[in-house]
Design a protein around this nucleic acid. Structure first.
Length: 163
DNA sequence: GCCAACGTTGGC
DNA sequence: GCCAACGTTGGC
């Protein structure tokens, strides 16, 4: 059986909370991407993410916001138990009621940092990227699919350097 | 099931 | 800090 084709995603993080540099510094350059509390984003992780998929790491609420580097999925979806932790800001009362988290996380590992940080303005300069979800007005989804052609161009523009 | 009110996201 | 856009909640 042929291996499933590699898929591509973009994941947002606020660098003040957890930055790409934090990911690079993490043990094995890997972290559980927890705290996602949006059903559409969860469903992408739970139903579509596969080990080996590529991830653009995007800094939101940054000056400026943009894509900083590349990671890969190293563990498929498993329960995000912060939802059960009363002291966590990601606590979810409904999950706690059920005794089982309705939220999931995946593990991602830092792969490369862009030599050329790509701000939203940078990305907008390229017609081939005009359909990128992250560029759409009002797009708040924190986990987004990225097309193969978008991925390839963004990597070319970003000049990734292995971390 | 509708939809107004509310809370959050995130660019600017 | 502003506020547009969006998701969720809850009354009915």
């Amino acid at each position: 059986m042929a291996a499933a084709a590699k898929q591509f995603w973009l994941m947002k993080t606020e660098p003040d909370v957890f930055s790409f540099a934090d990911l690079v510094r993490a043990p094995k350059k890997t972290t559980g991407w927890d705290g996602v509390r949006n059903y559409q984003a969860r469903n992408f992780m739970r139903d579509a993410f596969r080990v080996g998929d590529g991830v653009l790491i995007y800094h939101s609420n940054a000056q400026p916001s943009g894509v900083v580097g590349v990671a890969e999925v190293v563990r498929p979806a498993y329960p995000d138990d912060l939802a059960l932790d009363k002291n966590s800001e990601y606590f979810d009362a409904k999950s706690a009621e059920d005794g089982v988290s309705r939220w999931v996380k995946v593990d991602v590992r830092a792969v490369a940092q862009f030599k050329h940080f790509l701000s939203l303005d940078d990305l907008r300069k390229h017609k081939a990227l005009q359909n990128m979800l992250v560029l759409k007005r009002g797009m708040r989804l924190s986990v987004q699919p990225v097309s193969k052609s978008e991925w390839e161009l963004v990597l070319k523009l970003g000049a990734p350097e292995k971390v």
